[in-house]
C-alpha cells in the first residue's frame, strides 16, 4: 500500500500539534477575567447574572470559603450544598429568602446546631458587602438547591451603610470606659486571660485589643453573660471562661466594662 507523502507528513504534523494541544488542555485551566465593579441597582439584571455575581463574591470579597464549603462539611461552619432548599425549613414560618438574608445580616439569630456562633455580619467590616453584593450573594445561596426569587427590595436599605461610611455604625452605651478598664483589670479579672490594647498580655484567651472592630456590641455583651452559649473562638480551649460574671458584676460595672471593650478598635 502506497501512502502519498503529503498524507503521511500531514498526519505527522497533526499528531505533533495534537499532542501539544492535549498537553495544554491537561493542566488546570485558568482564565484571566477582567475585574468587575459590581453595581446592580437600577439596572435590569437577570437571575443568572445575579447568581454568577454572587458566586464571585462568595469566592472573593465575601471570604465565605474560609469557613464554609459547598459539598463538604467544614469544621467551622455548615456545608452550604443545598442551602437554598434547606433554608425554607430552618425556621417555621420563615421563607428561604428571609432566612438567608437574616443569616447573612444577623448571623447569631439562628445558629445551626453543632457550630459555634462565630459568623460576622457580612454587611459590616471587615467583610462590608454593599447592598448589591448582599443581594447577589443571597441569590447565589438561593440557587444552591432552591429558586432565585430575591429582589433588591428584599434587602434592607440600611445594609452597607456602615461599609460606605467607613466604620462601624455609631453605637452609644451609657457607661464609663475608664471605669470599665478598672473592672477589666480588677474585679472582672479579665486580664488573667485576655489582652486589651496596652493592658495585659496573657495568651490564654483571645486578644481583645481590637474586639470592637471585629465583633458587634451584641456579641460582646452576650459573651460576657453567657460564654458557653456564644461559642468559642477557633483555636482556644472550650469552657475556660467563667460562667458567673452575670452574678458577680454589678450592672454599672457590666455597662462600664462593655463600653470599655467597645473602645478597643
Amino acid at each position: 500500500m502506497h501512502v502519498p507523502v503529503g498524507v503521511k507528513v500531514g498526519l505527522f504534523a497533526v499528531a505533533v500539534m495534537g499532542s501539544y494541544s492535549y498537553f495544554a488542555n491537561s493542566i488546570p485551566q485558568i482564565e484571566s477575567k477582567p475585574p468587575q465593579e459590581l453595581s446592580l441597582e437600577g439596572g435590569n439584571v437577570t437571575p443568572a447574572q445575579l447568581v454568577k455575581a454572587g458566586e464571585e463574591i462568595f469566592h472573593t470579597k465575601g471570604t465565605c470559603e474560609i469557613c464554609h464549603r459547598i459539598g463538604q462539611p467544614g469544621t467551622r461552619a455548615p456545608d452550604l450544598a443545598g442551602a437554598g432548599g434547606r433554608a425554607a425549613k430552618r425556621k417555621p414560618g420563615m421563607s428561604a429568602k428571609a432566612y438567608l438574608i437574616e443569616s447573612l445580616l444577623q448571623p447569631q439569630a439562628y445558629v445551626v446546631e453543632g457550630y459555634p456562633p462565630i459568623m460576622p455580619a457580612v454587611d459590616k467590616p471587615p467583610i462590608a458587602l454593599n447592598r448589591s453584593e448582599v443581594w447577589a450573594l443571597t441569590a447565589f445561596l438561593e440557587s444552591l438547591g432552591g429558586t432565585v426569587d430575591v429582589t433588591l427590595n428584599d434587602i434592607p436599605a440600611s445594609v452597607g451603610a456602615a461599609a460606605a461610611g467607613g466604620g462601624a455604625a455609631e453605637f452609644k452605651i451609657p457607661g464609663d470606659p475608664q471605669a470599665g478598664a478598672q473592672v477589666f483589670q480588677g474585679k472582672g479579672t479579665c486580664i488573667a486571660c485576655h489582652k486589651a490594647g496596652k493592658i495585659g498580655a496573657s495568651p490564654v484567651g483571645p486578644d481583645l485589643s481590637q474586639i470592637a472592630k471585629i465583633q458587634t456590641p451584641d456579641y460582646i455583651m452576650g459573651k460576657i453573660l453567657n460564654p458557653a452559649g456564644m461559642g468559642t473562638v477557633a483555636g482556644f480551649p472550650k469552657g475556660v471562661m467563667p460562667q458567673d460574671f452575670g452574678t458577680r458584676l454589678t450592672s454599672k460595672e457590666y455597662v462600664d466594662l462593655v463600653s470599655f471593650l467597645l473602645t478597643l478598635k
Binding site: 485558568i30 484571566s32 477575567k33 469566592h59 472573593t60 470579597k61 471570604t63 470559603e65 474560609i66
Partner: peptide, 13 residues
C-alpha cells in the same frame, strides 16, 4: 492576606 489573593491563586483557601 488570603482574601486578597488574585485569581491565579484559586481556590481561595
Amino acid at each position: 492576606g488570603g482574601p486578597g489573593l488574585p485569581k491565579e491563586s484559586t481556590p481561595w483557601n
